[in-house]
Write a protein that binds this DNA or RNA. Structure first.
Lengths: 350, 350
DNA sequence: CTGAAAGCGCTTACAG
DNA sequence: CTGAAAGCGCTTACAG
């Protein structure tokens, strides 16, 4: 489609838009007076052939400004040197960290990243995976909404690493939620909160359930009453939408599934002219870009997103120095948490 | 490297990690009892062959759960159905909008996006372009740091679209800076500012120069004195670093190259216990995610980033319905701008 | 409409 | 060490 376009009359793109044929190993072979197979060896396995010959070939390649065609190389070898990353929603800043870490790790190993979006749909995620699989050496599912079955099925057909998701027999990079959650719950309790809520994310999100479970465990340990609200969309709007449930629940503090929901909830509270943290203390998860820009700055449980992306790619490439190791979490104390006031949002629900 | 790894003894990944051979058109041909070339036609050019035969072939393909191998298809056709997007820095939230828009537009046309980062280096950008070119049907340079020469050279070898950069004879998507800048400058003047600064971005950024030029033109028209500060890194730190120059300049308001610099500057001012906008009014460019989270929320000149990414891909794919049309800009009024106080940051420089 | 063949640009056993 | 050949999974003139 691109190349078939007739040049528009008004645009002077004479040589532009018309692909110049790239030199191949045959061109080099002719120039260096060797067999193409020798060129291939010289270029892809340095040191394996006569040094003189190799030098001659390299010189010819340089002269022709030759670049290997990765597509042509991929066909016989099955190695594409690209990695597919599938995320639920690129719009979500949580992904930025993962994308960035994954891109850097991939680039550092000479790999290219292909990013695809599933739009929070398991079905679309499966389609995307199938579509991209033949072109990649492996897949990382950044925020899978797929069932365990399907994930195992994919893992049988291609190297696969999961982020924030645990499926028996499949590689994954997972956080150690306990330290961050302990610090958060302890922080709330020491502030005087007695009744708190977990605002959960998408029902299909494994990590949302895990976060809720860990909070439940720790809240019980520390003698706090916990109410679960949700599920909701992992977005600003999802957080805003939870406002009335939060009021009804009678809690004085909420830990949201992620920073986006936390921020959305804070803004809804502010829009109702109630103060944060006076009327409601709010804690998020992730520490995304901008979490410290909010008013008040958001207290949040940081999970190292960059590191997750980086490690997922490392696992995929077999550089699994840290295989099985959990990523640390920690509470980042800012200003969205405080002493519950007598007039907190949920007081009349008691 | 991935497939060669010996399965670790402790991991029960027997069939996992070992690629199951995918079915090919030869498998289908055998099953449907036709020639492979017929299979190819049936699948890639529906309606071109006998309907009965086509149905038989489709049934066989379905039964085998066949997916075309895009790499194998790309070799004879030269069409990869993927697009390369090169950005200076994925870390920069400005890119998020572009990436998102580009990804959506690409996906909508059945294309896959490859993202590469040049890390603000023209040299690395050139390398990335060369590396990725054989695998893509076209390139969009999101924030090119390349010289005009090199860009033209690339454009001669592959379909290419520029964002925020104008090079004769090369397709590009550009903003119409005037309305946004006019509104911003007028806004500052009506607030009582008389002496303002433009905090410029990277010296190699074409759009940074354009923004500065447009501000200069409009400031002159409206009778404001303009000082240029910079160049600086287009980051939070770049904004912070400009603090002392801003103080020295004696201005009461600054328009920064982008929101990141604007936010960085605001935070530096706040860290010095000076109020924004009292001590200094600050305006950014772009309206990135989080620009409305800041304290105070950032007044900024919005440029539609998603739309830029989307349109760049559309141009690349020849769906150039809006070719040559400029993207609109507008001032988003928030709270980082106000009346200059007598005690503004730059007062003693006068 | 369909088959047989050649070719896309590489890699890699197999000989010599 | 190097050449000649086959093959990766497709597509597409060329015949029939």
């Amino acid at each position: 489609m691109i190349n078939k376009e007739e040049p528009k009359a008004e645009l002077p793109r004479t040589p532009s838009m018309r692909r110049r044929a790239a030199p191949t190993i045959y061109d080099i072979a002719r120039l260096a007076e060797v067999n193409p197979s020798t060129v291939s060896r010289a270029l892809s396995q340095p040191g394996r052939i006569n040094i003189k010959t190799e030098e001659r070939i390299r010189a010819a390649a340089k002269q022709l400004n030759y670049r290997v065609n990765p597509i042509a190389r991929a066909l016989p070898t099955g190695r594409t040197f690209t990695i597919g990353l599938i995320v639920a929603d690129i719009t979500n800043p949580v992904m930025f960290g993962i994308v960035r870490g994954a891109e850097h790790a991939a680039a550092a190993s000479g790999y290219t990243l292909i990013i695809t979006e599933s739009q929070e749909s398991g079905e679309r995620e499966a389609t995307a995976a199938e579509r991209v699989m033949p072109s990649v050496d492996g897949l990382v599912l950044g925020t899978s909404r797929l069932g365990d079955e399907k994930i195992r099925d994919l893992a049988e057909r291609t190297p696969l690493v999961l982020i924030n998701r645990d499926v028996e027999g499949v590689l994954s990079v997972l956080p150690d939620l306990r330290p961050g959650v302990e610090q958060a719950v302890h922080h709330l309790r020491s502030l005087g909160h007695q009744r708190i809520a977990y605002l959960s994310g998408p029902a299909t999100s494994w990590i949302s359930r895990r976060r809720g479970e860990m909070i439940a465990v720790v809240a019980a340990e520390q003698g706090l009453e916990l109410i679960e609200i949700g599920p909701g969309a992992p977005t600003l709007d999802g957080g805003r939408a939870a406002y009335s449930s939060v009021v009804q629940s009678g809690v004085s503090a909420v830990i949201a599934y992620n920073d986006l929901m936390a921020i959305g909830l804070m803004r809804e509270v502010a829009d109702r002219d109630a103060p944060v943290p006076g009327a409601l203390s709010v804690i998020g998860f992730d520490d995304i870009f901008g979490a410290d820009f909010t008013t008040p700055p958001l207290t949040t449980i940081r999970t190292p997103l960059d590191e997750a992306g980086r490690r997922a790619v490392a696992l995929l490439l077999g550089k699994n120095s840290a295989e099985g190791e959990l990523l640390p979490t920690e509470l980042v104390l800012r200003a969205s948490t405080g002493t519950p006031s007598a007039a907190h949002l949920g007081q009349h629900a008691n």
